[in-house]
Computed example of a mutant assay.
Amino acid sequence: MRKTDILTPIGITLGFIMIMLAILSKGGTEGVSSFLDVASIFVVIGGLTASLLINFKMEQIKLTGNVIKETFHKNDQRMTELVEKFIHLAERARRQGILALENEMDEVDDEFLKKGILLAVDGIEPEVISDIMNAEITAMEERHYRGRAILEKAGEYAPAWGMIGTLVGLVLMLNSLTDPATLGPNMAVALLTTLYGTVLANLVFIPMKNKLEQKTEEEMFIRQIIIEGVIGVQSGQNPRILEEKLRAFLSNETAKEPNEDTKMTGEHVNET
């Protein structure tokens, strides 16, 4: 289940609020206008867009919106619930046979888990199942990498274009040295492009890229648990043993002691 990740919008909003408070604390409302310059915005945004168009294919550029939206969502799949699902599947497989699991597929939302169980039901060898599912993990990792590469490059190019804008402003400023009164204001405008590029990189693009990278690592970890669970169910492992094996993947914060029903079920299976 996908839910909104409120930390992303909160973090971005908080960052801009802190910058605005810093501006207002020194220059008041009148100081805000000194931090706005249309030409600087054109240089940073226009240059950044041009660099991304050169660096990536149009198919990747079109996916930028979807990639950014991913940073505002999170996967609410709990690993403890995943372990409990495998315990249930293992118990049914031992009682009714592996083919009985096909009837469970309507209740499975995770397509990766469903694919693994169907491979097991079809009687595919465990080594082959592991190879197929690991290949899908590798393909997923590559897709995710290509998606966040746009944000990664944007984080690199934004400060660079900010510096280019600053250099352009300095050249224009040096051409007007005959009027000393304009040096201060012209210097301030020249530095604005560096400010814009640095803020975009460090408050938006790089944090978003890092969040997507963490999401990929979490998804890969969960899928490794699924592979172990599928192979355990197919091999007919005791549900209690499979539970202990899968719980070894969980951290101290997410792992929890089996409830009484699970303990009783495990004892019942041992007796049978």
Results as ranks from 00 to 15, higher is better:
M1Y: 01
T8D: 00
P9W: 03
I10M: 14
I12P: 04
T13P: 02
L14V: 15
F16Y: 12
I19Y: 01
A22H: 02
A22T: 07
I23W: 06
K26S: 12
K26H: 11
G27A: 09
E30W: 09
S33Q: 13
F35T: 00
L36I: 15
D37A: 08
S40P: 04
G47A: 14
L48M: 14
L48T: 08
S51R: 01
S51M: 11
I54S: 10
K57E: 06
K57Y: 05
L63P: 01
G65V: 06
E70A: 02
F72T: 01
H73D: 05
K74M: 10
N75K: 12
Q77R: 14
R78A: 14
E81W: 08
E84Y: 08
A90P: 09
E91Q: 13
R92F: 07
I98G: 08
I98H: 07
E102C: 06
M105V: 13
M105A: 03
E107L: 03
V108S: 03
F112D: 06
L113F: 11
K114R: 13
K114G: 08
K115T: 09
L118S: 05
E125H: 13
E127M: 00
T138M: 13
A139G: 00
A139C: 00
M140C: 03
E141Q: 14
E141N: 14
E142V: 07
R143S: 13
R143T: 12
H144M: 12
H144N: 12
Y145E: 09
R146S: 04
G147P: 03
G147S: 02
G147M: 08
A149T: 06
I150S: 01
E152I: 03
G155V: 01
Y157P: 02
G162W: 02
I164Y: 03
G165N: 09
T166L: 06
L167F: 12
L167V: 15
L170I: 12
V171F: 08
M173P: 11
M173S: 12
M173R: 07
P185R: 08
P185G: 09
L191D: 04
L192I: 09
T194N: 03
G197C: 04
T198D: 06
N202C: 04
V204W: 01
P207V: 03
K209H: 09
E213P: 00
K215F: 09
E217P: 00
E218R: 11
I226C: 10
I226G: 02
I227M: 08
I227T: 08
G236N: 00
I241F: 10
I241Q: 05
F249L: 06
S251V: 11
N252A: 12
T254P: 03
A255T: 08
K256T: 15
K256V: 15
E257L: 15
E257A: 15
T262P: 01
K263A: 13
K263Q: 12
M264L: 14
M264I: 15
G266W: 04
V269Y: 03
E271K: 14
